[in-house]
Amino acid sequence: MVTGRAAVFLDRDGTLTRPRHYPSRPEHLALADHVGPWLRVLQAQGVALVVVTNQSGLARGYFGATDLDAMHQGLRGQLAAWRVRLDGIYACPHHVDGSVAHLAVRCGCRKPAPGILLRAAGELRLDPARSWMVGDAASDVAAGHRAGCRTALVGPPAPGDTESAVRPDLRTEATWEALRHIAERLGDAGHTRW
């Protein structure tokens, strides 16, 4: 029996948005090429769209929670231009090497741990078994697998990533290609199974 909606969980930096090292202002985030139309297709199919992002810049003191909120407000505005609405944005602020004491902790939400995906699934009533995690790093794929999702790895391999170790269900050069594949798969399979 289906317990919740299907979702596409999206890593932010380098997946939903163009790569940038520790973005800290809204103008630092720019949507990846061609993602808007495919996100709109998925949204029309009833798929939840959820950003799940590690943001160790908070723990490292590079920016604050207000800055992160402003970036995400700007991101929502860019997506609104494509008539796309995110169902949620979940950010892990932790890193054990951080300089902000209360955030410099080992946690269960920082990818590759699945906590951030499982929290989103619980709060938004999503079914991980019907969902996909799309990201540009091994940690995204590992988190998706641990949460019970199918996974897509996009873009060139990140330094230190070994594809043989992460084994994504789908490998594409660009995020829009992964979104197209997922949308087509959903269209073929309907809402009851993948």
Rank of each mutant, 00 (worst) to 15 (best):
M133S: 05
V52L: 01
S56W: 03
H72I: 09
P156L: 15
A104K: 08
T172H: 13
K111V: 07
V2D: 06
P93W: 00
V141L: 02
R193L: 14
L86H: 00
H145S: 07
E177G: 10
Q78I: 02
I182D: 06
L75K: 03
E27A: 13
A70S: 13
A104F: 10
V41K: 09
H102F: 11
R5G: 12
V41A: 12
L186S: 14
M1C: 05
R76Q: 12
A147G: 05
G108S: 14
A120Y: 02
H94G: 03
A137M: 12
G122V: 00
A189W: 14
L153Q: 05
R185T: 15
F63P: 06
R167C: 14
E27H: 11
D67P: 00
R119N: 08
G98Q: 02
Y62V: 13
T162V: 14
D11A: 05
A120W: 03
R167Y: 10
G64R: 11
L31H: 01
L39R: 00
H191W: 11
R83W: 00
A147F: 07
H28Q: 09
D97M: 06
G155S: 08
H181V: 15
A30L: 14
P37D: 05
H191D: 13
V141I: 15
D161W: 10
L58I: 15
C92M: 05
V166N: 09
Q55E: 06
Y22F: 15
P159L: 06
T53D: 05
G88L: 03
F9S: 00
H181F: 12
A178C: 08
G57T: 10
P114Q: 07
H94T: 04
R185E: 15
L10S: 01
R106A: 14
V141T: 09
V41C: 03
D127F: 08
V41R: 15
M133H: 08
H95D: 06
G155R: 11
I182C: 09
P128W: 07
L117D: 04
R76I: 02
W82Y: 15
G46E: 09
H34S: 12
D11S: 04
V8H: 01
A120R: 01
G74E: 03
R83N: 11
G190L: 14
A59M: 06
L179F: 12
L42W: 07
P159Y: 03
G144I: 00
R76N: 06
R40M: 02
G36V: 05
C107G: 05
G14L: 08
S131I: 02
R150S: 05
C109M: 06
